[in-house]
Design a protein around this nucleic acid. Structure first.
Length: 919
RNA sequence: AGGCGGUUGGCUCAGUGGUAGAGCACUUCCUUGACACGGAAGGGGUCAUUGGUUCAAAUCCAAUACCGCCUACCA
């Protein structure tokens, strides 16, 4: 029969070479067109849902995304195959400052500033930008193989999403949780906006510590203070020293002449000053430092704003400084102080400098009026829900990190002085009592007029922090604030997987908003997903059950990937080079409970080799099937020992993979897959099957082998599919299978009847025997080509039976012309035999004239030396009465068996040695 | 400064009390009809250090060192 005729006509043949680019786009399109990824509420199935962390609309796929989205997709696919109505909702975040930055840069190339365009037109440009580039990352997700429900894609500025934000704002505003406040915020002088803590990076920079003298107003000497920011001197409101500091106790309350100004400032007592640092006295600038601000509030100090929003000095700084850039002002202050002989010294100093992540400008802590959210009341339930174990962190160490932050939560500044984003839905009028401004929540001018009772009103200029909108993500993407079937069925979601740096800014806030806004009837709420008391009719529902914090992907040297270092790896390049499957596999192999991943491209190369191996082994299986092969599991009676063995290995692997995925040990899951497929299936099972495929007779042995190969391979493909979706689909389609796509095929589950210690032990012996024979051949440098005579001496009946049963297999694998099995070794005079002991037997090889006596003795001695060491170790243990008496009897028994085995091998080898030494 | 991770063969990492493992790299051999992106056989580790608990420690405890991450108001 020709090869072509052997191939089942209904199934296509695999291409000779594995080329991911030739299969991946094809299957993604097929799946998408068939609606495989679309999920609807389905009462007959359990729900499984995930919302992806929405990447910035300006973003493109980086390694962190690739890792996280591989995990999300694998978890979704795994559940889909296990019969869940599995949904993964994609979307993007409008990313206020980042998008505005990108668009402003584009405009700058045309020589336009956003102020030239005006607010409306600028926002129009932002939308245009988004239309053009904002979906790029979606195509990249598709390329990675992410099976997301594209019918449900969400953007944080969609009209329905805006409804959710309005609802959130209204509720918090009306409950007084959102308030207007004046505090020191992180000010970005380039964007002229407040920025959030996460957008501030602390960098160690070299700077100077300046020691200045502040003279007492009454001329009775001076106090020395130190500062890294001399320009803030102009805004000083006091000098503080610790109340316990004896050096300053006599002077508290006295006034100091603030140099370069006309002002006098007091020396106050505040324990914010640490006596051990510098002179023990610290200048206090309430408007330009958060700690000084708090100190100022405590002591009722004035707040002089001397640095303006653009980073230049204000009028309050005095006529000599007004308009100067803050860093110019710094130089000038130092120079003038030196001139006045008030500069004591300048030291080199390492300064923890806050830098704006977006603009790379030094952040200016600045007193300004902003909108804040009072987080304390919102944090309380969010703490409880984690303490009560309703939301689980994986790895669990993040629970403490989360709780620590939540318990020390601070007000959240939500206003941003940007144009792109959700404009704050608050309207103002100055028609209040005594012309005081008043404000009210309103979604539109009409609402505002109604609420304020006047036409003379205007909307707040600021927009909301982007995180204000993403905090609503899980319920907003499911249609909240409108009650609907999706929200009912898919909420709470099952998993939130993300990077650790947004644990606070995002994860914590989603928990807070979820609990605050999503309430259900206690009777109908799913067990373990709600917070409330027995008497509450309505209870708060958690947004997700599991929070998986994935590792940070670093470069191979362990450095963060960054544009400036140029050490980043573009996942799209990896996919183009090795395929999405290899990219995913290499990421999953490294994704466990680790904090970071040192990633090198080599890992993907190795994963690609695995895919290639899978491809070729599958080709082998396929070309050995024929039309009659159904891939049905042969009856137990028809199965060979090897068949039972591979099924036993398979069910152990299935169990391991399912268990590992359930606990987010993706590294363990991929390792189990890798080892089973390569070491068990390819290295041994396929090799053991080869002679059976060539078997003569009625063809039943060949048939069984064919069905077994097809069955095991098909099952393995389903097991692998969540990790490597494309290649598994391509091969699966070529094999006998049930269903239209592997995506919706059943996920393998362990089968108790397959567990077969007897077969595992028997094939274990077969493998040992084969290895011993191959080893003899190699150690004595005998050509691998010729078929040699082999023999085995079995110590007991079990081993004798096992070896006999697998005689042909061993002979084939070890390239023997014949294999004699007996209870004793070959008789003298029957040839030149060398031997090697295995557990329960000794394997022999007839090597004719090619024996190298010296070499053989060396081999035996080497082996003996290592065995002797093992025996000594074991003897030492067993001769310790404490061990024998105290250790678990099973352990002692096991140790005795080990010793006996080593001693047995030692005796056999010694006999061999004597034999050869005599020659 | 505090908290949390890490430290296992040349490299990247598994391994939570009972004979130290994998992949890559390395050595030797092999292009035998699935695969050289492969096959076969090997070499290589006092599991960071020190102490403790235990019959038994890579594994549990304590300290130390180094690396990393995250929080933090040290001018």
């Amino acid at each position: 029969m020709s090869e072509t005729e052997n191939t089942p006509s209904a199934t296509p043949e695999l291409a000779k070479n594995y080329e991911p680019a030739a299969i991946e786009p094809k299957w993604y399109k097929t799946w998408k067109d068939a609606g495989v990824f679309h999920a609807e509420p389905d009462a007959s199935k359990p729900a499984f849902s995930i919302t992806i962390p929405p990447p910035n609309v300006t973003g493109s796929l980086h390694m962190g995304h690739a890792l996280n989205n591989t995990i999300l997709d694998a978890m979704t696919r795994w559940h889909r195959m296990r019969g869940y109505s599995a949904l993964c909702i994609p979307g993007t975040d409008h990313a206020g400052i980042a998008t505005q930055n990108v668009v402003e840069r584009t405009l700058a190339k045309e020589g336009i500033k956003r102020q030239d365009l005006g607010r409306e037109a600028f926002i129009e440009r932002c939308w245009e930008w988004r239309e053009q580039y904002g979906s790029r990352i979606y195509f990249q997700f598709e390329k990675l193989g992410c099976g997301y429900d594209w019918d449900r894609v969400r953007f944080t500025m969609d009209a329905t999403y805006v409804d959710a934000i309005m609802e959130e704002f209204k509720s918090w505003y009306e409950r007084g949780l959102i308030y207007r406040g004046t505090r020191v915020v992180n000010w970005d002088v380039k964007f002229q906006s407040a920025v959030s803590d996460i957008e501030v990076i602390t960098e160690e920079r070299k700077g100077k510590l300046y020691h200045f003298r502040y003279p007492f107003a009454d001329g009775s000497g001076h106090i020395t203070i130190a500062t890294t920011r001399p320009e803030t001197l102009l805004g000083d409101a006091a000098v503080a020293a610790n109340p316990t500091d004896e050096r300053y106790q006599p002077h508290f309350g006295k006034m100091l002449k603030l140099p370069l100004t006309e002002r006098e400032i007091p020396l106050i007592a505040d324990d914010y000053a640490k006596p051990e640092f510098g002179s023990g006295a610290v200048k206090v600038t309430p408007a330009h430092d958060l700690n000084d601000f708090e100190c100022g509030v405590r002591n009722n100090l004035p707040q002089h704003i001397v640095i303006g929003k653009d980073g230049s000095m204000t009028e309050l700084a005095g006529p000599e400084f007004v308009g100067l850039d803050r860093f110019e002002a710094r130089k000038k202050v130092v120079a003038m102080m030196e001139e006045l002989d008030l500069l004591e010294k300048i030291e080199d100093y390492t300064i923890q400098t806050p830098i704006s992540d977006r603009s790379k400008e030094v952040i200016e802590p600045l007193l300004s009026e902003q909108w804040f959210v009072d987080m304390k009341p919102l944090a309380e339930p969010a703490i409880r829900v984690v303490k009560e174990g309703k939301i689980r962190f994986i790895p669990d160490r993040y629970e403490d990190i989360y709780l620590h932050w939540m318990e020390n939560i601070r007000p959240w500044c939500i206003s941003r002085q940007l144009w792109w984003g959700h404009r704050i839905p608050v309207w103002w009028t100055n028609e209040g009592e005594g012309g005081q401004p008043r404000h009210a929540f309103a979604r539109s001018r009409e609402e505002a007029v109604a609420a304020l009772g006047t036409e003379n009103c205007w909307q707040d200029e600021d927009v909301l922090d982007t995180w204000f909108s993403s905090a609503l993500w899980p319920h907003a993407v499911l249609g909240w604030p409108t009650d609907n079937a999706d929200l009912d069925y898919f909420y709470p979601t099952n998993l939130l997987s993300t990077a650790q740096e947004i644990l606070y800014l995002w994860v914590a806030r989603m928990i807070m908003t979820g609990l605050d806004f999503i309430k259900r009837n206690r009777e109908t709420a799913e067990l373990g997903t709600w917070l409330g008391s027995e008497t509450d009719e309505l209870v708060s529902i958690i947004p997700f059950r599991d929070v998986y914090i994935h590792a940070t992907v670093l470069d191979e040297k362990g450095r963060r990937m960054s544009k400036s270092l140029g050490n980043g790896i573009d996942p799209i390049d990896l996919i183009d080079k090795y395929g999405a499957d290899a990219t995913r596999f290499s990421l999953m192999q490294q994704a466990g409970k680790n904090q970071d991943i040192k990633f090198s491209e080599q890992r993907t190369d190795i994963a690609g080799n695995f895919c290639n191996k899978l491809w070729n082994a599958s080709r082998f299986v396929l070309m050995n099937l024929d039309d009659a092969t159904t891939g049905a599991l042969p009856a137990r009676a028809e199965q060979s020992l090897a068949d039972r063995w591979i099924l036993s290995r398979l069910t152990a692997t299935i169990e391991q993979v399912n268990a590992s995925l359930a606990t987010y040990d993706m590294d363990d899951a991929t390792r189990a897959i890798y080892q089973f497929f390569w070491n068990d299936f390819c290295d041994w099972y396929v090799e053991l099957a080869k002679p059976r495929l060539r078997a003569e007779g009625d063809g039943s042995e060949r048939k069984t082998a064919q069905n077994m190969l097809a069955y095991v391979l098909e099952t393995t493909l389903r097991l692998m599919h969540p990790v490597i979706p494309f290649i598994t689909e391509e091969i699966w389609q070529a094999l006998p299978h049930v269903g239209d796509t592997i995506c919706t095929a059943t996920y393998p589950q362990p089968v108790a009847e397959w567990v077969d210690p007897e077969a595992e032990s028997a094939i274990g012996t077969t493998i040992d025997a084969t290895r011993a024979l191959r080893n003899l051949r190699q150690e004595l440098a005998i050509s691998p080509a010729p078929f040699l005579k082999g023999a085995a001496a079995a110590a007991g009946e079990t081993v004798l039976a096992t070896l006999t049963a697998n005689r042909d297999l061993i002979a084939s694998l070890a390239r023997l012309s014949e294999l004699t099995i007996a209870t004793a070794g070959p008789a003298a005079g029957t040839g030149t035999w060398i031997g090697s002991p295995i557990t329960g037997a000794e394997m022999f090889l007839e090597i004719g004239d090619s024996v190298d006596l010296k070499r053989e003795l060396e081999r035996i001695d080497k082996e003996l030396a290592s065995i002797t060491k093992e025996i000594e170790r074991s003897l030492a243990k067993l001769s310790n009465p404490n061990f024998v008496e105290r250790a678990n009897p099973e352990v002692v028994e096991k140790e005795r068996a080990i010793l006996t085995d080593w001693q047995d091998k030692q005796r056999k080898l010694a006999e061999r040695r004597t034999l050869f030494a005599a020659n």
